[in-house]
Simulated scan of single mutants.
Amino acid sequence: MKDWWQATFPQGRQSLIISDVDGYPVQIAYGEKGTGKPLFLLHGMGSWSYNWRYSVAALSKHFRVICFDAKGFGFSDKPWLRREKNGHQVIELARVIQGLCDEPAIIVGESIGALISLALAQRNPQLIGRLIVMNAPVFAERLPHWAMEILAKTPLEVLQAIDYLRLAYWFAPLVREVMATERRKVLFDPSILTPEDVYWITYPFIELPGTLVKVAEELQIAAKEIEDWQANKPNLLSQIQTDLDKIDCPTLVLWGDRDSWFPSTHGERLHQRLPNSQLQIIDNCCHDASTGAAKEVNQAILKFLQDTNFL
């Protein structure tokens, strides 16, 4: 099967070295296409750049589109020996942006990528020219999927053993079947998920050891955040919620009307808290909007950027 990076980006998969939150060098995998203002596409939990496969060509006609895999995801480094600190994604996102461009960027974030984008807009507003957030877990009261709950409660040592023994590789057909079944549940039209899609969506979990551990570690951080939020203990989620009205950047809030993970009422609530925002509810769209409603998402992004004089 043809390499997705090579097929999608003129220079294929490239690498950027950044310092992580602890100062260690980390290799970030990314691809870029097009010229003009930089536009970053941020994936969600357990995903990687492939989730934006239907947006790169359309958006790169107008912008310099950059897809990258967050640390621990996809083809980026997965440090085994260091435990992640809460909020590390925000700091590392800033360093990726600074490493790849020298002007305010357009940030498009989906799911956890959207939450990280909101936090970045609060901490480093000078890095963002326009912000588009999709189906953000900013008001989440629980982890939205049973598999996430299991991973969040499984000791990392157990998952490291699974990775070390390459069990996902040896049971690849089963892994692909389970993940395909669950991914179809977040699509309004499950039939659009092709065998090639399933191959690439599951590739990091099967072929790149460390992926399962790092995803589980992020889920454990997320679960602890929600637990602390509900117990009124200090947490990053509450801080993001409290400071939403401080985000001045023109922002588009996109939400699927059929999102069973985070209902569209969360999108309306987010829009009300952002002083310079627009809201668009996408019809017949579940949580995975970048795949399930790519055409509508791309059109909404371009219209918003045109209306706010960024196109």
Rank of each mutant, 00 (worst) to 15 (best):
S191D: 09
I192Q: 11
I192W: 11
T194A: 11
T194N: 15
T194D: 13
D197W: 08
D197Q: 02
V198N: 10
V198Y: 10
Y199K: 11
Y199E: 14
W200N: 12
W200Q: 11
I201G: 01
I201P: 05
T202C: 15
T202V: 09
Y203F: 15
P204I: 13
P204T: 14
F205E: 12
F205G: 09
I206N: 03
I206L: 05
I206K: 11
P209H: 10
P209S: 13
P209R: 14
T211R: 02
T211G: 00
T211E: 00
V213F: 03
V215N: 05
A216R: 05
A216W: 11
L219F: 04
Q220H: 07
Q220V: 05
Q220Y: 07
I221A: 03
I221C: 03
A222P: 06
A222I: 15
A223T: 09
K224W: 12
K224E: 14
E225M: 07
I226K: 05
I226A: 06
I226C: 11
I226N: 05
E227D: 00
W229A: 07
Q230R: 13
A231G: 03
A231T: 05
N232E: 07
K233N: 03
L236Q: 10
L236E: 05
L236T: 10
L237Q: 12
S238R: 13
S238Y: 04
S238D: 15
S238E: 09
Q239V: 06
Q239W: 11
Q239M: 13
Q241P: 05
T242N: 07
D243M: 04
L244K: 03
D245Q: 11
D245F: 04
D245W: 06
I247R: 11
D248P: 06
D248H: 10
D248Y: 06
C249L: 14
P250A: 13
P250I: 15
T251D: 09
L252S: 05
L252W: 04
V253P: 03
L254K: 06
L254C: 12
W255Y: 06
W255P: 00
W255G: 05
D257C: 12
R258D: 14
R258P: 03
R258I: 04
R258V: 08
D259M: 06
D259W: 04
D259N: 13
S260Y: 10
W261C: 14
F262I: 10
F262L: 13
P263M: 12
S264E: 08
S264K: 14
T265M: 13
T265G: 07
H266Y: 15
H266A: 15
G267P: 00
G267C: 13
G267S: 12
R269A: 10
H271C: 05
Q272F: 08
R273L: 15
L274S: 09
L274T: 04
S277A: 15
Q278K: 13
Q278N: 12
Q278G: 08
I281C: 02
I281K: 02
I282Y: 04
C285Q: 05
C285V: 06
C286K: 14
C286W: 01
C286I: 01
H287G: 03
H287L: 06
A289H: 02
S290K: 00
S290Y: 02
S290Q: 09
G292T: 07
G292Q: 00
A294E: 00
A294V: 02
A294Q: 03
E296T: 01
E296H: 06
V297I: 10
